[in-house]
């Protein structure tokens, strides 16, 4: 690995130019895949043998739950890079991820409740999976609030990043909660690669949705991150040029 090449993107103007180039591609490709996945999931995929059409909420529930955790992982890693390398760009990226991650967590929780009400017979229980995902939402809120309440930029970055880093521990807890404890929530369907528990004609729209959400998310980081970098560097010469 050529570290110098990576360091290059750590400089604000380089990051800004790179992100601006990447952003439209990611946002449009992401939306395109989400559109195809939605059509596939809502109209093409067959009904489930037990849940009928109601199972189709999986096409929104699973990708948003997946993204709520990937976004947090990205925010945590950006926070570590920010603290260890004192990288302003990494802090900006972490900060721009938080609202999107919180949104994904909220969507995962709400679609889960809509799904749980008719199928389980309840919208909410405090089992290990639901509780740990709820804690994830609180972590996002904590990060956003902490950042907003501390006036001095550097202190706010450091404090919020420490919270984000400690919260990383929650990610394996969410993932393995259905394995470690008895939960009302079912076990994972697609992350066990040896024997997928979903047939191919139901699986492909789900995978398209997840990949679409992922690519869209990268576009969101580019957009939010570059805007945040501009804000932070507003007094420097390169910003005046753009």
């Amino acid at each position: 690995m050529n570290l110098k090449k990576i360091y290059k993107y750590g400089s604000p103007p380089n990051f800004y130019r790179f992100a601006m180039k990447l952003e439209p591609w990611c946002l449009s490709l992401g939306l395109f895949l989400i559109a195809i996945g939605s059509i596939g999931g809502l109209f093409v995929a067959p009904k489930d043998y037990q849940m009928g059409d109601a199972f189709r909420i999986i096409y929104f529930h699973v990708p948003s739950a997946y993204l709520s955790m990937s976004a947090y992982a990205a925010m945590g890693i950006a926070s570590i890079i920010g603290i260890v390398w004192r990288s302003n760009v990494a802090f900006a990226v972490a900060k721009s991820i938080a609202p999107f991650g919180a949104l994904m967590t909220a969507v995962a929780l709400i679609t889960g409740m809509l799904w749980g009400k008719p199928m389980w017979g309840t919208a909410w229980v405090w089992d290990a999976r639901l509780t740990s995902e709820f804690i994830l939402l609180l972590l996002y809120f904590g990060y956003i609030t902490l950042h907003a309440t501390i006036k001095e930029q550097k202190k706010a970055d450091r404090a919020a990043s420490l919270l984000a880093i400690l919260g990383i521990i929650n990610l394996p807890i969410i993932h393995y909660s259905v394995v470690w404890w008895n939960t009302l929530h079912q076990a994972s369907t697609i992350s066990k690669l040896d024997s997928p528990s979903i047939v191919g004609e139901m699986l492909w729209p789900l995978l398209l949705m997840i990949i679409g959400y992922m690519i869209f998310f990268i576009g969101v980081i580019c957009r939010g991150g570059s805007a945040e970098v501009l804000m932070r560097e507003k007094r420097s010469n390169w910003v005046k040029e753009v």
């Binding site: 067959p46 009904k47 489930d48 043998y49 037990q50 849940m51 199972f55 999986i58 199928m119 389980w120 009302l184 079912q186 076990a187 994972s188 369907t189 528990s197 979903i198 047939v199 004609e201 139901m202």
Partner: peptide
């Protein structure tokens, strides 16, 4: 409790 299997 729903299991993790989905099929037509």
């Amino acid at each position: 409790k729903h299991d993790e299997n989905y099929m037509p």
